[in-house]
Design a protein around this nucleic acid. Structure first.
Lengths: 144, 144
DNA sequence: GTTAGAACGTCAAGAGAGTTGACGATATTC
DNA sequence: GAATATCGTCAACTCTCTTGACGTTCTAAC
C-alpha cells in the first residue's frame, strides 16, 4: 500500500475519479462529448444563463479560459450566447433546450456518482468529506 | 453562498489550494521553481530512486509524461538519471543531494499546510477528510 | 540457441486547460 | 465631458497529458 501522506495527491486523484466517470457516462447517455473543463462549466451554468465573467469568477479561472470553453459548447448547440439586456458590453451564456436537458442529465449523474460513493465507502464518510470540503479554507497560505 | 452540490468541483478547488501554496512556498524558501506536476512527482520520489515506469504507475500517468517531468527536474539538478544496475533497459531516477534537501523541505511544507488547515477548519474535519479520501473508492463507475 | 513477445525509455505530434498582455467597446464616476 | 473600470476577445505562450511508433533489452518457449 502507498504511503498516504499526501493530501494534495489524494484530492487530485479523487477528483479524477468523478471526472472520468462523469465524462464517460455523459458520453454514453447523451452522445455528447464534453471535455473535463466544459463539463465543470456546464454543471455551473444556471438555467437562466450567466455572464462569462460571472462564470469565470465562480470557476476560479480567467475570462479568457471561459470564453474558449463557451465557444466549444456553442458549437455543440449546448449553449447560446446572447446580448445581456442589462448591459451593452456583457453577454449572457444560456443553455439551449438541448443544453438544459444535458445539464439535467449531468446533475443526475453527479447525484448517482455520489450515491455510488455512499454505497462504497459509507454515508458517514461522504457526509464528512462534504463537510470538510465545504468548510471555509480561506486563501492558500502565501509563500511568506 | 454558492450551491454546493458539486463534489467534483470542490475536490478540484481544494487540490488547487494545496498546489498553489506548495509551489509558492517552495519557490520562496528554496528558489526552486517547480511546476505542479513536477512537485507531485517530486513528492513521490523515494530517496533511493525509482524507475520511470514505476513513477508513471504511481502517479497514474503515462511513461512519456513522467519522462518529460524528469527532464525538467534533471535540468534543475534536482534528480539524476542513472542506469538501473538490475536491468539494462531500465533507468533509475534518483534525487541529487540538492534534490534530497528539497524533498525534505517539500514534505515539511506539506505538513505545515496540513497544520495550517487544521488550525483553520479544525482537527476533526481534517481527520475526517483524510479518512474519507483514504478509503477504498474503487474504480470510477464506467459509463454502462 | 534462436526467436517471439513483453517491458523500458524515448521521439513526435497533438489536444486540452490555463495563463498574461493588449485592445476596442461600453459603463460608471466625478 | 473626461478619467476609469468592466466585459469580451485576440494572440502568444506554458504546462500536462495523450496516443502511436520505434530501438533496445530482457524473458520465455520452442
Amino acid at each position: 500500500m502507498p504511503e498516504q501522506t499526501n493530501l494534495a495527491r489524494l484530492l487530485l486523484s479523487r477528483f479524477r475519479w468523478f471526472d472520468r466517470a462523469l465524462l464517460a457516462t455523459l458520453h454514453d447517455r447523451l452522445g455528447v462529448k464534453l471535455t473535463s473543463a466544459q463539463s465543470l462549466l456546464f454543471a455551473t451554468l444556471p438555467v437562466e444563463g450567466a455572464r462569462q465573467s460571472d462564470l469565470a469568477h465562480r470557476l476560479g479561472v480567467s475570462r479568457q479560459a471561459v470564453n474558449e470553453l463557451v465557444g466549444g459548447l456553442e458549437q455543440q448547440d449546448l449553449v447560446e450566447v446572447v446580448p445581456d439586456p442589462d448591459s451593452g458590453r456583457a453577454k449572457l451564456v444560456r443553455p439551449t433546450t438541448q443544453g438544459r436537458e444535458s445539464i439535467e442529465v449531468a446533475l443526475e449523474i453527479f447525484a448517482q456518482l455520489e450515491a455510488e460513493l455512499r454505497a462504497r465507502i459509507g454515508d458517514r464518510r461522504v457526509d464528512q468529506l462534504r463537510g470538510a470540503l465545504d468548510a471555509s479554507w480561506g486563501e492558500p497560505p502565501g509563500g511568506g
